[in-house]
Amino acid sequence: MIASMRRVIAQPWLYSFVGAALVWIAAVTYTGGYGAGGMLSAGIALAAFSVIVGTAQMFVITLGPGNVDLSLPANMGLASAVAMKVMGGCDALVLVGLVAAIASGTTIGIANYLLIRLLRIPPIIATLSASFVVQSIGISYGRGLQVKPPPGFATATTVQIAGVSVMAVVVVVFSVGIGLLLHRTTFGRSVAAIGQNARAARLANIPVERIRALTYALGGALGGLCGALLAGYFQGSSLDIGNEYLLTSIAVVVIGGTSVAGGRANVTGLWGASLFLVMLLTMLNTYGVSAGVRLLVTGLVIIAVIVTAGGPRIAR
């Protein structure tokens, strides 16, 4: 009993939830309890998006050192445009639009993998160059595009029932699925194995390259999906829609207790970290601090978390 208690306390993701709660309390205390519920439900709704992008980034980072997807923002921007164009403001085409967005994201993911594999370049540079290209495709494809999302789709992404965002509930279910995918399927186990020790994974008969390809494709697909959903939430596509998610996606993965060195992913932590970051921004907003302070605090929090999580250099 005590041992299991200790094990729970030792989980790094727990701190992000505690942090989120503390920050929320701090914000509520400042407003004198005014808007406590609203803050929470708005926060949860926004956090859901970070969770989806964070999941994409988490899978890629879990593949091991050096793996990271920098093309997610560009991917999301393009996917939001694709989704809105395909839907064309018509509720009947919502599903088709979502599929198109996911397909666009998957294509980018596969392109990323091919660059890494064929050009033998580090993922950071491959996804970076891909993001340049995708950004341009997005700009030229989405030029002058001001398509509103279909009303039904927009409602679906924003509607709240009893203060609870429906989107968020769906994303919670999605997270449970991702948790199962990670821990209870051959694919998830293979990703974790490769991230811990790619050589050992190969020698344990894991098809390393196939899993890598699948992971980048999955990351791209989730990025595409999130882009489309954001377009619904913000009432229209925009190529900049994903911009802030480059840093957020990496931040929620790191704060959420996923190992930056790969091999260990944490889905629960993504929620804690996303809530924490959203709540932090909410709190700073209620305090009325400037955007500068918000960014400064976010940056320092990320550094503090990684410094705490990192171990000292092993002297030899």
Binding site: I250, V254, G292, G310
Partner: peptide, 26 residues
């Protein structure tokens, strides 16, 4: 000293410098 991934640390600094820049010149 802490054997940290430079990508994450400098990512944090990305925010920090940007925040400071906005504070200096809103």
């Amino acid at each position: 000293l802490r054997n940290l991934p430079s990508i994450v640390v400098t990512l944090g600094m990305f925010f920090v410098w940007q925040g400071l820049a906005i504070l200096v010149l809103p």
